[in-house]
């Protein structure tokens, strides 16, 4: 565990909590892509199956349980509790165009051809593109609430910090996982355009951030 890993995990946790609280407090999931949130629930479920087979640490187990729990709670709020506020018409990204190629890639390129390893690889690849329905939705409506941009910033920052963590681990532990690094790079690059807008147009007294 190094400082980049820890701050990355905390940034990820902050993003998840921010989104849950935003929906809960406003009693609305307007502007939030339910499809992205379902993909994240699938990502956590397929990645953390090792909860059943191995114990790493109390930190590891509890964070995994919190991530999974919050992901399903978010999906529940969007599709059940506040379903009336869900903007399905604007959430029109075709997720099969992500899930099918990502599934094929996980079968082809993985560390070990076993069910658990393929599911883990699938979750890594899927996470890298899971935000696309959300970004697509924002580009379609042309705006995002400030709190939604904070969510996206924390979520993007998390993977960028993990990249620094992997550089650290390469230098100090000689550890290099090309699958995670490749997917992490793709994931971070997808947020770059958003990072730029967040820094230049966010904050101040703007209520909303417009995206092209």
């Amino acid at each position: 565990m190094n400082v980049f890993r820890l701050t990355g995990d905390l940034s990820h946790l902050a993003a998840i909590i921010i989104l849950l609280l935003k929906i809960w407090k406003s009693r609305s999931c307007a502007g939030i892509s339910g499809k992205s949130q379902i993909l994240f629930a699938v990502v956590f479920t397929t990645r953390y199956l090792d909860l059943l087979t191995s114990f790493i640490s109390l930190y590891n187990t509890s964070m995994k349980l919190i991530y999974i729990g919050c992901a399903y709670a978010t999906v529940y709020l969007i599709y059940v509790k506040f379903r009336a506020t869900y903007d399905g018409n604007h959430d029109s990204f075709r997720v099969e165009f992500l899930v099918v190629p990502v599934g094929g890639l996980a079968v082809l390129i993985n560390h070990n051809f076993s069910l658990m390893e393929i599911l883990w690889t699938f979750s890594i690849y899927l996470e890298s593109v899971a935000i696309l329905p959300q970004l697509f939705m924002i580009s379609k409506t042309g705006e995002a609430e400030t709190i939604t941009t904070h969510y996206l910033f924390c979520l993007g920052l998390y993977r960028a910090l993990y990249l620094l963590n992997w550089i650290w681990r390469y230098y100090f532990e000689g550890f290099l996982d090309m699958i995670a690094i490749f997917a992490g790079l793709v994931q971070t690059v997808l947020y770059c355009d958003f990072f730029y807008l967040y820094v230049t147009k966010g904050g101040k007294d703007r209520k909303k951030v417009m995206l092209p």
Binding site: M1, R5, D9, H12, D50, S54, I56, S57, N60, M63, K64, Y67, H111, N112, W120, Y162, N165, R169, F175, L176, D177, M178, I179, A180
Partner: peptide
Amino acid sequence: CHRTRAKDEL
């Protein structure tokens, strides 16, 4: 390059 993943990462 390791043919494995970091099992401690989230």
